[in-house]
Simulated scan of single mutants.
Amino acid sequence: MNKRILLIEDEVAIADTVVYALQREGFVVSWHTLGRDGLAVLDSEGADLLVLDVGLPDISGFELFRQVRQHHDTPVLFLTARGDEIDRVVGLELGADDYVVKPFSPRELVARIKAILRRGSAPIPVVLPNAGLQHDAARARICLAGQVLNLTRYEYRLLVLLLEQPERVFSRSQLMDAVWQDPAASFERTVDAHIRSLRAKLREADPACDPIRTHRGLGYSLSWTAGPAA
């Protein structure tokens, strides 16, 4: 079955170009100019990937993304006319899978979408339970103390990577290379923000669970025997 792409973009010329490029590659595309309309379609019909413009007329793309994540784990690629670092950081810290800055090459956009979909369908190694953590690889979720952790896509990938190799110290650049779709466009503080969020969610599920260690000047590791995190 052909993959379904939901495009939420209010600029007609850009949307026409994106729709044409995606349809040529065999994707089924549903295009909407307003965030509320696109969200309604996602709720009712679903999608394999969402291409979301940041500057929509009725709602910020970032705010719409937050609403999407309340009920869906659909991969999201942001389209933005803004080149400022802060906008890229915000999108990545929210948990988006990638972003493309306008003007962009339709071929590049299609290639990034294909890469996200390939990565999302790749098998994830099984991780054995450890100190109450249970990784359900088939459903791409991690439970702690009987609770499913509400993780973003990148938080999930970070935690799986750390669980796979406990005690190993990963540098920030190694984490970006292993987890992020486009590590060259990511930033070290993005990794730090995701680690902080992961720690908070682990403590929320189990206040005694604090396994992520900070190694100053080196990076991060996961340990069940070390002292409090730095």
Results as ranks from 00 to 15, higher is better:
52 L>N: 09
209 C>E: 08
22 L>T: 06
164 E>M: 11
124 I>F: 06
209 C>D: 01
18 V>G: 03
7 L>E: 02
95 G>I: 12
66 R>A: 13
106 P>N: 07
206 D>M: 09
218 L>Y: 07
56 L>F: 14
225 T>C: 01
61 G>T: 09
83 G>A: 15
130 N>G: 01
182 D>V: 14
47 A>Y: 04
3 K>I: 09
90 V>Q: 06
105 S>I: 12
28 V>K: 15
179 V>F: 05
197 S>Q: 07
161 L>K: 11
89 V>R: 11
229 A>Q: 01
205 A>P: 00
72 H>N: 12
154 Y>F: 03
22 L>E: 06
150 N>S: 05
64 L>G: 10
217 G>R: 08
55 G>N: 12
42 L>T: 14
77 L>D: 01
91 G>V: 11
129 P>L: 13
100 V>M: 04
58 D>S: 15
67 Q>G: 03
61 G>F: 05
166 P>G: 08
217 G>K: 05
88 R>I: 10
179 V>S: 02
41 V>F: 01
69 R>M: 03
102 K>C: 09
70 Q>C: 02
179 V>L: 00
159 L>E: 07
151 L>H: 12
13 A>S: 10
3 K>V: 13
149 L>M: 08
150 N>E: 05
131 A>K: 14
63 E>K: 14
58 D>V: 11
74 T>R: 02
172 R>E: 06
38 G>T: 11
222 L>P: 00
10 D>R: 14
102 K>Q: 02
99 Y>C: 07
200 A>V: 08
107 R>T: 12
146 G>N: 10
103 P>L: 13
156 Y>Q: 08
138 A>N: 04
